[in-house]
């Protein structure tokens, strides 16, 4: 297994490089450059040429890309931001990624905590009231976008009732392991609304998936064997059906995790959270090449890691799956 993990990680390196290259070339293809405007004014030609020289943009493309890779590998340096004076991409990601990760992990946690039990309850009461209620709520949850739910929660609980803080994020450095905050009251109060706004949709999809998968598994022959043995229905489900039925859930969890942990622009801007989500968009509209490359790289690395985690979880759930 260890050898498998190492091999998987090793083979992800060329994938990441290829991805960076693709992004790099695509950026060049977008019209406009990072120094076209400074505020409202456009800069004089000479100044632009100066800036481009300073950031090495006058060099041939292959040399630019090679230099970029070299500084990542040798120094772990993702380069300077072209548009935010005196901030490196490392600074930007270092400040914003832990916050996005905190929110994302909370939201995924909430989604699992609600989604899996709700799916189980629905499946066990197939075509009875609890199933209808859970399925109705799940459809509601899936179909209300965070873009709507976020502002509604915000308006009701922060503005109208004043129960929870209006904006910003309550975690304070230092973070344990680089991203885990102290669970202070301030942190929790700030986290509740965005976690619910982000987690609701995911918990609804997880509930639907769990329900469908469990209903499938419950028809299997080995479930009949378990019942024929005289097990209680709860033991049948928990011991004999649940593990099998979680495989599809785990499958969607990988990409879901990578997507929310690296920041979601909608929730972050509704609640004024200084996470990484906005840099995906801001980086592109500003043509801030290193920022685009940097956040894409982080996203890709998280995706690679979470897919690896998914595959390891498969092997834990299903002993027929063995990696060597």
């Amino acid at each position: 297994m260890a050898a498998y993990v190492v091999r998987r990680l090793f083979w992800s390196i060329p994938v990441l490089v290829a991805l960076l290259l693709a992004v790099f070339l695509l950026m060049q293809a977008i019209p406009g450059g990072p120094f076209d405007f400074a505020g409202e004014r456009s800069l004089p030609e000479a100044v632009i040429a100066n800036l481009e020289r300073r950031y090495g943009l006058d060099k041939p493309l292959h040399e630019q890309f090679a230099n970029y890779l070299k500084s990542i590998v040798l120094e772990g340096d993702l380069g300077p931001s072209f548009r935010q004076r005196n901030r490196s991409v490392n600074d930007i990601i270092g400040d914003s990624f832990p916050i996005s990760a905190q929110l994302g992990i909370l939201a995924i946690g909430l989604a699992l905590l609600i989604g899996i039990p709700a799916g189980i309850v629905a499946a066990l009461n197939h075509n009875r009231l609890p199933d209808y209620v859970a399925s109705f709520l799940a459809i509601l949850g899936v179909s209300i976008p965070a873009l709507v739910l976020g502002p509604v929660l915000y308006w009701l609980f922060a503005l109208k009732l004043g129960w929870l803080p209006v904006a910003l994020w309550g975690a304070e450095k230092p973070f344990f392991l680089g991203f885990l905050p102290m669970p202070t009251a301030k942190f929790i109060r700030h986290a509740i609304l965005p976690t619910v706004a982000l987690g609701t949709g995911m918990s609804a999809s997880i509930a639907r998936l769990t329900r469908a998968s469990l209903l499938q598994v419950i028809r299997e022959d080995y479930i009949r064997t378990a019942r024929a043995k005289g097990l209680r229905e709860r033991a049948v489900v928990v011991r004999h059906a649940l593990k099998n039925s979680l495989i599809p859930v785990v499958t969607v969890l990988g990409p879901m995790f990578a997507a929310v942990v690296t920041g979601t622009i909608v929730i972050e801007s509704v609640f004024g959270i200084p996470g990484m989500g906005k840099y995906f968009v801001q980086g592109i509209s500003n043509r801030d090449y290193p920022v685009i490359m940097g956040v894409t790289l982080i996203y890709a690395v998280i995706l690679v890691l979470s897919n690896l985690l998914v595959d390891i979880t498969y092997a834990w759930l299903d002993p027929r799956i063995r990696y060597s």
């Binding site: 299997e220 019942r227 099998n244």
Partner: peptide, 24 residues
């Protein structure tokens, strides 16, 4: 009934491939 199933009346099934739980 659960006290009887698997205790006083037992069953074996056609397909031993699918009648055993693959993950236990």
């Amino acid at each position: 009934l659960r006290g009887i199933r698997g205790n006083r009346i037992s069953m074996i099934f056609q397909d031993p491939m699918t009648s055993l739980n693959p993950v236990l």
